[in-house]
Nucleic acid binder design. Structure first.
Ligand SMILES: NC(=O)c1ccc[n+]([C@@H]2O[C@H](COP(=O)([O-])OP(=O)(O)OC[C@H]3O[C@@H](n4cnc5c(N)ncnc54)[C@H](O)[C@@H]3O)[C@@H](O)[C@H]2O)c1
Ligand SMILES: NC(=O)c1ccc[n+]([C@@H]2O[C@H](COP(=O)([O-])OP(=O)(O)OC[C@H]3O[C@@H](n4cnc5c(N)ncnc54)[C@H](O)[C@@H]3O)[C@@H](O)[C@H]2O)c1
Lengths: 213, 213
DNA sequence: CCTACCATGTGCAAAATTTCACAATATTTT
DNA sequence: AAAATATTGTGAAATTTTGCACATGGTAGG
């Protein structure tokens, strides 16, 4: 594999996808898996699986397949989920609550160490996970003090850019924005806009092409 | 534009993206927008905007741009969000709760008319939006009775395929699966797997490539 | 009515991504 | 130990998607 081949954006996302069945196989006691099986579990082409993995190294054994445990560790190392990340959430509404309380994220190494809101009713309340909701006015200080790397935005869309600017100003390195607007930040801060309502719209589009009987 | 050009999957998702700033412009009283502006708001190339729209028709006026109101309606018509869809949710945990309670979805035409869980503690409780949580055992009957078209899965991943099979059996036409596993269904049922934890992993990957100071 | 101007719609080239097909290599069978 | 079988890694082909560049058609001002 050419050393500096450009890695498709989609390949990274598929890597994450591959890790899901690997975890299940590991628990089930299966030790080896082929690109064909893995592809089947994830609904992709086997050559795609092999090529995606080949961007990062040679993890398989010809004629045999991939060692489940090894491959999972390799993928986690590539995706940097083998380490701890410190995060904060801004906007503790229904979605923010769901994300912060999700055990899965903790297991993946995402540790929420702060939660901010601007609603006086919510500030100073404690979440089930133990996290205290703080005023968004404290954001800058708290981000610096607790060395927070990633900010997750779950405010309404009209507040999202303002919150982004606050986060950037506080020196945050990455942002996940769940509000349905594209926020912008300087190159020093990596932004991922996650508008998952588009998936509803995508489904509706497909259903509208299909006779609904 | 060639009549039967194959429409890229990504084009559909971008259409949804374009609708977000259009709604804001409409509210702000702006009546006309150029592909350049729209592209800027959405972080894409202006030619891309024009080409995406051209798959479906000629919505603009040369030398002028697009009428905000008209374009929004066209997009909503294409994405079939100009009509009502009836949905149910399976798994009323934190995420399921957030989705059902989200006003935005209702405004987009997604009407949740049933919520199912298997937890006896939750069954028969009423959600803030007024929806009653019902036993998943009633799924088949309720789906048919209330003419439900789309099922949204927010159960843990190890239950997702079972729930999918139930939904398919009940005759559902589309499924949105939010659990981190790829569920499979016959071609008669359109499935959209929405594993948004991959976006966390994607961000972590990028941050690990960047010096974190 | 003519001219200057502007932004769309689109043919075509470029780039990116996916898939094929097979050489390479490990294991199992005879 | 040779043959048969299995499955990876990858160059090259096929396909898909994006972006350029400009003709086209509409507006506005004189
Ligand atoms: N709920 C969902 O299923 C869902 C799905 C996709 C996207 N979203 C988006 O996620 C965002 C949150 O959704 P939700 O359902 O949790 O809404 P919500 O109204 O329940 O929560 C929003 C929270 O943000 C807080 N907030 C507002 N402005 C703030 C600011 N400047 N600083 C700090 N906190 C602020 C509010 O006080 C509130 O607690 C919205 O943009 C929504 O469109 C939600
Ligand atoms: N919370 C998040 O931010 C988040 C993000 C991404 C993905 N997810 C995924 O979404 C799913 C739900 O997440 P959550 O945080 O809401 O979890 P949760 O534990 O709060 O909720 C799960 C709910 O599903 C119900 N359930 C379990 N099996 C069922 C069955 N067979 N039929 C009907 N109901 C059943 C449970 O009783 C519970 O109420 C999980 O798969 C999770 O991985 C969650």
């Amino acid at each position: 594999m050419k050393k500096t081949a450009k890695i498709p954006y989609a390949a990274i996302e598929r890597l994450a996808l591959y890790s899901r069945p690997l975890k299940v196989l590991l628990k089930t006691g299966v030790t080896v898996v082929s690109s064909e099986k893995l592809a089947e579990y994830c609904g992709v082409n086997p050559a795609q699986v092999r090529k995606d993995l080949a961007y990062f190294g040679e993890f398989g054994v010809r004629g045999v397949g991939y060692d489940v445990n090894d491959l999972l560790r390799e993928i986690q190392s590539i995706l940097a989920t083998d380490r701890e990340w410190t995060l904060c959430i801004i906007g503790v509404g229904n979605l923010g609550h769901a994300i912060v309380e999700n055990d899965n994220f903790r297991e993946m190494g995402y540790r929420f160490v702060a939660a901010f809101d601007k609603d006086q009713e919510k500030i100073s309340k404690r979440l089930p996970c133990g996290l205290l909701i703080e005023s968004v006015e404290r954001l800058r200080d708290v981000v610096r003090l607790r060395n927070i790397q990633i900010g997750v935005i779950t405010t309404p869309p009209d507040e999202a850019q303002r919150v982004t600017d606050l986060l950037v100003d506080a020196g945050i390195k990455g942002i996940l924005n769940f509000s349905p607007t594209q926020v912008k930040a300087p190159k020093s801060c990596v932004v991922e806009n996650v508008d998952f309502a588009v998936r509803f719209e995508h489904l509706a589009y497909h259903l509208s092409k299909v006779p609904l009987k």
